[in-house]
Structures are given as C-alpha cells and as structure tokens.
Design a protein around this nucleic acid. Structure first.
Lengths: 214, 214
DNA sequence: CGCGGGTTTGAGGGGTTTCAATACTAGTGG
DNA sequence: CCACTAGTATTGAAACCCCTCAAACCCGCG
C-alpha cells in the first residue's frame, strides 16, 4: 500500500494530518458501503480488510500492517466496497479524504507515486487470486505466512527467529478460503515437516528456503 | 477499467494516440514481467489477463472488453506482473506509456479520474476474491456469466436474448478456479434448471432475476 | 476424409468440509 | 487463588464437492 515514504513529501504529508487516534482490538473501523470522510494511516498494530456474502461467509482480502494506508481506494471513490476491522489494538493517523486527495492529485509527482501504490496493490491482489484459484491448502497457507514474514521484515518488525502473529486459525482460514479446522490440520503438518511452527501467537519459520520456494 | 470517456478529455486523449493495430485471436499480447513501452485501449474483441504457477496452472484474472485499457497498472509501474492474451481477434489503439502517464498525472482532474478507475478495478477484484474464496462452483460460474452480461449491456454489446460469448469451458474454468470438466457439468445443471444456456458460443440468459440473485 | 480442439459422460479417488466432542487458554469476577 | 466462561485449538468420523483419468462424441477445417 501507499506508505508516503521515499521522499521529502513524507514531511509534507504530515502537515495534512488532522490528529492521531486509537481503536480497540476487534473494533470494526468501517463497514461495506460506508462513505467515510476520513482516511487513516496505520501506525501501530494489525487490521484487515474483508467482505462477507449474504449468508455470512467471510473473505479476508488483505492484512494491513504498520505504515499502510486505510484505505487506498478511498483516494478514488467516496464509497468503499469492503469492511475494515482492527485485529489488535491499533493507532492511526487521521487525514481528511478530500484534502489528501487534493494534495496528491494536485502534484504530478505525488499522483505518480499514488499510481505506483495502486499498481503495487493490484499486483498483490492478482497474486492472491492465483493462490485462491489454483493452489492447494498447504500452498495457500505457506504463501500467506511467507508473505506476512516478508512484509514484516521489510518494515523491521520481525525478529530473526520469527515474529508475533496475532491471527487465529479462523483468520488464516478466511484469508485463504479454507475452514479453520483444515487450517489447524495443515499447520500440524507443517510443524511435523519442520517447515514452521505457529503457537501462542508466535510464528517461527524453521526452513525459510523451502517456505519461500512453495 | 479506465475508459477515457465521460468528458471532453476523450477527444484530447485521441491526440495522444499513436496508431491503431490488430492482433490475431489467441495471440499473447504481453508476458508476465514484461516492461512494455506502449499501452493499449481495446477497441473491438475480447482479451484476458492471466497468471500461471510454475507448474502450469493458469488463473484468469479478468476479461478485457471493448473500451477497457490494457493495462491500467502500467500507469503506475513499468513492469506488469501478469500476461495478457487475445481471446478473439482484437483491434486496439496504441498509446505511449510515458506520454499517457504524463498526460494523466499532469492534470489534477484527469489524475482523479484515473484514481477512480483504479478504485473501480480494485472493487471488482475484491469481489472476485470473495467469489474464489467463499463461493461454490455453481455460484462462481453464475456470477461470472452475470458479470459479463452486465458489462456487455453497459457497453451496448448484448442483445436482449443473450450475447456472443467467445469463451471455452476451459476459460471459464481458469477464471473460476475450477476444472473444465466440472464447468461442463455445472453448465448442464444450469441448462436443466432453466437458468441459462450456453452453446456454440452464444449465451442465453433465461432467468435473469434468479441469476442476478445468486 | 482425417485431424485437433472442445464438449460430454462415467467411474473412481482425494482434498476439504461438516459435524461433534474434547481440551486448551486467557480473561473475569468472586 | 480459584472457579467460571468464552473463545480457540485439536482430534476423529463421515460426507461431499470437486478433481483426475479416460473414453466417446461432436464439430469446424484443412
């Protein structure tokens, strides 16, 4: 997602910041169909974007990590087509949607960087569609966990041995299109084959090369 | 996708057009990892974006219809992370990637409209992830065909009784994450239950309300 | 006419789900 | 400090959806 970094504009964006605030864990930040006037940048904690079918099945579209914008598409539309929920307690910076849009679109270089952020997110969701449509449960879970490891490392939020993973098996299930029960079984397999182990909210990657190769 | 319509800019975009050209059916327009210097707007015919796994499983990410840009993310990145292939013979308008990007990002209003196009595509892929992750074969196929019907009608490319659908069952399978065999069986069910019928490249929707309700 | 790609149908197997019961863990209040 | 509770994880058995393999069929086309 758009992280506002990479240039002196980082400081200029700060001038637009209205305030900072926090949300409790499990708090829903916004619902599908909302037209929020404000837009957040996640500062600390985890959140996720999701959609639900009419009969209640939930698909987690992506996890939002510190530095990510909530929600990039809001730069292009008033109404968002998905819900956002805090996974842990989170703290965010608040921007005005219209002010931020004016700021970004008013300058070619900034608009270009926003376009790059869109392209990056688009590439990520395409990759995810390949996972959901074509790969096995084992592959999907391995790739999700590896993706999160890569993202966290990029942000300096992972230790060498592993990292804190505030996801339940249900979250992993809803992100990969599987059931929580089957996620549990697959994680047991991975533990047994010394690929990785996930327990008490801590993920340890024991064989990074094999994991990345999946 | 971004269709350049909706304002007097339509004509100005035409000034940027380098030329028009055509591609034969089944021709691959670009490969995953390419960094094309040109960017197309589809004028006539069908194409699709796809990705493949290392062992050859293919996921069709979206179908590209007349009016769509090939490829929107190219406005934000040099390298595209998916391949594009012509389904039928197609004709396209050719633009220079950098020229078009300069043109769009150089004006706040145009940049805003590109952002809106990004947001729309993002909403569409989110919807598709919900389909792939949570819905049954029957639902996925029904929703894909309904989506195409809606898009074609919006462009005035569908008759009242149905429309030409240049997809094989394999295409539908790769778009929905199923196998061609199972797509065939499911289409038979739909035909039997008088929902729709697909034969010889012509799709007839017999019960539009039920279809849209799925 | 023969050929190749697409479709249809059948039988069988496998990955994943569903249902159900038990065990664990963390937070809460007495 | 311990019981209580709710959410989470684990395990087993059975069913189901979809896949794989395979053969036959169809059709347009050279």
């Amino acid at each position: 997602m758009y992280d506002g970094s990479g240039a002196e504009d980082g400081s200029r964006i700060e001038a637009l910041r209205l305030r900072c605030t926090t949300f409790a864990a499990r708090r829903t930040i916004c619902y599908e169909g909302d037209a929020p006037t404000e837009l957040f940048q996640l500062f600390d904690g985890w959140a996720f974007r999701y959609k639900v079918t009419r009969d209640g099945r939930r698909q987690i579209l992506s996890f939002i990590l510190p530095g990510d914008l909530i929600d990039l598409p809001l730069l292009g539309t008033e109404r968002i087509a998905h819900a956002v929920k805090a996974l842990t307690a989170i703290s965010v910076c608040v921007f005005s949607r219209t002010e931020l849009a004016d700021f970004i679109y008013g300058d070619a270089e900034r608009a270009r960087r926003a376009g790059a952020a869109f392209a990056a997110q688009s590439a990520a969701t395409d990759e995810q569609m390949l996972d959901l449509g074509q790969r096995s449960a084992f592959e999907r879970i391995a790739r999700l966990l590896n993706h999160l490891a890569v993202q966290l490392r990029k942000r300096g939020l992972a230790e060498a041995e592993g990292f804190r993973l505030p996801l339940t098996q249900s979250h992993i299930a809803d992100a990969t299109g599987l059931t929580a029960v089957h996620v549990g079984r697959t994680l047991r397999e991975m533990r047994k084959s010394k690929l990785l182990s996930l327990a008490q909210g801590w993920l340890t990657i024991e064989d990074p090369e094999s994991l990345a190769a999946i």
